[in-house]
Amino acid sequence: MDDDRLWGFEQSLWIEGPDNYREKVDPEVVMVLPRPPFAFHGEEAIAAVAETPVWDRAELTERTVSRPQEGLIVIGYHVRAERGGGPGYEAWCTSTIRRLEHEVWRVVQHQQTLALDRGA
């Protein structure tokens, strides 16, 4: 997966709905989210993100990509997401994406750490 497609794939998980999660997130995914119970696995993880309202806009910056082996991609980034003029959301994130077959990729790990005020 080239970088443009990779970042489009990841951004879609922020701005598209639950059907997109179910298509792109592996059933054995492990997620760490900034809310109890914090560590989620499998369907519980997919349900946790599917219950979150879709963001209107998500800007992924400070991007980094590692390809430690064929068919495995690890990314890190900062996200700033906004929805309907309400308070935004900022976090530092990682995702690990693996290839199942030609052009079929799934998220197997995702983590979000709330961003602290950079001026502090």
Results as ranks from 00 to 15, higher is better:
63 R>S: 08
29 V>R: 00
69 Q>M: 06
64 T>G: 15
4 D>M: 08
62 E>N: 10
64 T>E: 09
6 L>E: 07
61 T>A: 09
36 P>K: 15
49 V>D: 02
72 L>F: 07
90 E>H: 02
63 R>K: 14
102 H>G: 02
87 P>L: 06
42 G>R: 06
54 V>T: 12
104 V>K: 08
20 N>G: 05
108 V>Y: 13
119 G>M: 11
91 A>G: 08
49 V>F: 03
26 D>Q: 01
55 W>P: 13
63 R>G: 04
9 F>I: 13
50 A>P: 02
38 F>W: 12
3 D>V: 06
92 W>G: 07
13 L>N: 00
61 T>C: 09
42 G>W: 01
11 Q>N: 09
93 C>E: 14
61 T>S: 15
28 E>Y: 05
79 V>W: 00
20 N>A: 04
68 P>T: 02
36 P>S: 15
2 D>S: 04
13 L>W: 01
65 V>R: 12
61 T>D: 14
102 H>W: 08
69 Q>K: 12
31 M>A: 12
85 G>N: 07
84 G>A: 15
44 E>P: 01
96 T>W: 01
30 V>E: 13
80 R>A: 14
20 N>L: 06
45 A>N: 10
22 R>C: 03
108 V>Q: 14
118 R>H: 04
63 R>Q: 15
6 L>C: 09
103 E>M: 13
73 I>T: 13
106 R>M: 02
69 Q>F: 10
93 C>M: 09
7 W>T: 11
86 G>H: 09
74 V>R: 08
102 H>R: 09
59 E>A: 08
56 D>G: 12
67 R>K: 15
49 V>P: 03
72 L>T: 14
12 S>A: 15
33 L>Q: 06
43 E>P: 01
115 A>M: 07
110 H>F: 04
82 E>W: 03
82 E>C: 02
72 L>C: 15
106 R>V: 05
22 R>E: 05
97 I>R: 04
29 V>S: 02
116 L>C: 07
28 E>R: 07
120 A>V: 14
40 F>L: 10
9 F>Y: 13
24 K>I: 02
45 A>Q: 06
99 R>H: 04
48 A>D: 06
2 D>M: 04
56 D>N: 15
41 H>T: 14
41 H>E: 12
105 W>Y: 14
47 A>P: 04
78 H>R: 15
4 D>G: 05
94 T>E: 00
26 D>C: 04
96 T>N: 09
15 I>S: 01
119 G>A: 14
61 T>F: 07
55 W>Q: 13
114 L>M: 12
73 I>H: 14
75 I>S: 13
47 A>I: 05
104 V>W: 05
118 R>Y: 00
13 L>H: 03
44 E>K: 15
86 G>F: 02
18 P>E: 13
52 T>Q: 10
23 E>Q: 15
18 P>L: 01
39 A>E: 10
80 R>E: 15
19 D>V: 05
53 P>C: 14
81 A>D: 03
113 T>K: 08
1 M>V: 14
25 V>Q: 00
63 R>P: 06
104 V>L: 11
19 D>H: 04
53 P>T: 14
41 H>Y: 09
38 F>P: 08
119 G>Y: 09
52 T>I: 11
109 Q>F: 07
56 D>I: 06
64 T>L: 05
119 G>P: 02
35 R>E: 07
29 V>D: 01
93 C>F: 00
68 P>F: 00
119 G>Q: 10
